[in-house]
Amino acid sequence: MAATLGAAFIRGLTGFGFGILLVPVLALALTPVEAVLSINIMAGLLALTEIQVILREAERSALTIGALVVVATAPGLILLDATPPDLARLLIALIALSAFAAVLAPRRGPEQPGAATTAAVGLSAGLLTGFAAMPGPPVVPYYVGRDIPRVTSKASMIGIFGLAAMAGIGSGAAIGVLEWRIVILSLALFPLVLLGNWIGSRAFGTVGDPVWRTSVGVVLGAAALAALLRAL
């Protein structure tokens, strides 16, 4: 419960981090597949509560990336189901570490990357959605690494992550690994998700751009370190 509340707060503040922070914790009590599906259910429900902000503020590239995420999520989930749990936990930790390394790269201009880069981000985010409920590693640098308004960055990311979560839920149901007890657990934790995200969103409106970008880096670094230590 504490991990869920904290991850939701970070998600409300930064626009991402819910899966990166919470999957490694849930994966200690559940199988990696169950943890990933639980995160997807909670993240999908949360995105539905923010649909107006997404439609108003998100960059158009979010639609392209989100569509590719939907296509690539099922293969990622199938790969996770075939991976031994201990190895999956280690890979999930390394994925979190890669996101931290990527966001440290120098900031670019506001120009949207080319079609090939955008497609690569969408497909890799979809694979990571299925495998780890973490579409963030390729998506966060794509937006946060550019000199665009943080409101646009956040809205674009939460829109993509919402589509990713929906794709994860559908893929889990389609391949027969989504169980009712995971749905019940996710619904039981969801009020904490709403509370944490609300507090984080209020904090988002009170901090400046440099503080927000620093928070993004700190969250990614801490999550990567914690996930790696747990995996080892």
Rank of each mutant, 00 (worst) to 15 (best):
I65G: 02
T31V: 13
S38Q: 12
A62N: 05
V218Y: 11
R213S: 03
I95L: 12
A67K: 05
A35T: 00
A167L: 07
A115F: 14
V216T: 08
A105G: 08
A167R: 06
L194M: 12
P106K: 08
T117L: 11
P110Y: 09
L220M: 04
V36K: 04
A105Y: 06
I39A: 13
L163W: 11
I158P: 02
S215K: 04
A226D: 05
L37R: 11
E111I: 03
V177W: 04
V69K: 00
P106S: 08
V207M: 15
T83F: 10
A74F: 13
W212H: 15
V71Y: 02
I39L: 15
I175W: 07
L22Q: 02
I39M: 14
L48N: 06
I39N: 14
P106F: 05
R107G: 10
G208V: 04
E50L: 12
A203F: 13
A7Y: 01
A222C: 13
F18M: 08
L5K: 03
T14L: 13
L178W: 01
I199D: 09
G76M: 00
G200L: 14
V121Q: 00
V33E: 09
A167P: 06
V216Q: 02
F190K: 03
P85T: 02
V218G: 11
N40S: 14
A222M: 11
A101F: 12
V144E: 12
L97K: 02
I169R: 15
Y143R: 09
V103K: 01
L28D: 11
P113D: 10
V121Y: 00
L194G: 09
R11E: 10
L189C: 09
Y142R: 00
L28F: 12
A167V: 06
L189Q: 07
L79G: 06
M42N: 09
S124D: 05
D86P: 07
R108C: 01
S153G: 13
L77C: 11
F18W: 04
A7N: 03
F131D: 12
L94G: 07
